[in-house]
């Protein structure tokens, strides 16, 4: 076999290989588009004003999904109340205050672990600490607290990363003008990092909004004939409702199932889109 022939063979193998990689990439990406288009097509017919604004009827086989929508909104907001201040402050600590020592490494390891703990284990933890030990009962409050801790690592990491991307020269200059660490953070680095921080917050809350396992035993209700009146009430929520109607309610009309999935998808992907928009806009505007 002479050399040109050999390299022609090699060429063919490589072209084949690259096409194989193309195919693999398509296999990864196409289902995503497929899923979204499919749910849109199957779910849209279910969407109506009544569907979004009425209580379920006939054992949830008719009527709307208002309590699930409201519940998910409550849970998302409740999660934000706890996780945003705590997560942003912790991100500030890591980016602006912490020195590189053993304690800081321990914090980082803790965050990595929080990020990896299975969501159902968060559910157990929430049940043990919030529902039973602190006697909050199965409630929006207990579920929000559970979701908050699950969301923390996302918010902390993105906040830290956003702060770290702010040029150090600003910190040095602010300090040289008599700025304390907090003043420098509050007036310069945090505002500059804000788009990144907000993006991280939204991505964290997006995850919380779509989670089922952590709220299963901490705040989710199978069915409630009325809207929750206080943070101490249990609540319906879109993700749990989808689980319920697709596994535990015989004779559930498919259209309602797809419609509910569509509503959750719009909720979650809408947040995702918002995060992307904020990030891109900030990138385009940045002066440094």
């Amino acid at each position: 076999m002479n050399l040109p022939e050999y390299s022609r063979k090699m060429r063919q193998v490589e072209v084949l290989g690259i096409n194989l990689l193309r195919l693999i990439t398509l296999l990864t990406a196409v289902p995503v588009i497929g899923i979204i288009v499919f749910i849109l097509i199957r779910g849209l017919p279910a969407i109506s004003w009544e569907f979004l604004t009425q209580m379920p009827r006939d054992g949830m086989r008719a009527g709307g999904i208002l309590p699930a929508i409201i519940g998910t909104v409550y849970l998302t907001l409740g999660t934000a109340i706890f996780s945003v201040p705590l997560g942003v402050a912790a991100g500030i600590y890591l980016a602006e205050y912490a020195s590189d020592n053993a304690t800081t490494r321990l914090i980082r390891i803790a965050i990595i672990n929080l990020a990896g703990i299975p969501s159902v284990v968060y559910g157990l933890f929430g049940l043990g600490l919030f529902v039973l030990f602190l006697r909050l009962g199965t409630s929006i409050l207990a579920a929000s607290l559970t979701l908050s801790i699950m969301t923390l690592p996302v918010i902390i990491s993105t906040t830290e990363e956003a702060l770290r991307s702010v040029p150090n020269a600003f910190r040095v200059v602010s300090t040289s003008l008599g700025g304390t660490r907090w003043q420098t953070t509050w007036r310069i680095t945090l505002p500059q990092a804000m788009p990144g921080v907000i993006t991280g917050i939204i991505l964290g809350l997006e995850r919380a909004a779509g989670e089922t396992a952590p709220i299963l035993f901490t705040g989710a209700a199978f069915f409630l004939p009325r809207l929750p009146a206080s943070p101490m009430d249990a609540t319906m929520a879109l993700p749990y409702h989808i689980f319920v109607i697709s596994t535990s309610v015989p004779g559930m009309p498919l259209q309602i199932q797809y419609g509910t999935v569509l509503v959750l998808l719009v909720f979650v992907l809408g947040m995702n889109l918002l995060a992307t928009l904020i990030r891109n806009r900030a990138r385009a505007r940045r002066q440094w």
């Binding site: 020269a169 600003f170 040095v172 200059v173 310069i188 505002p191 440094w288």
Partner: peptide, 9 residues
């Protein structure tokens, strides 16, 4: 400093 660093204000 050697490089002018206007604060982002």
């Amino acid at each position: 400093f050697s490089r002018p660093v206007p604060l982002p204000l």
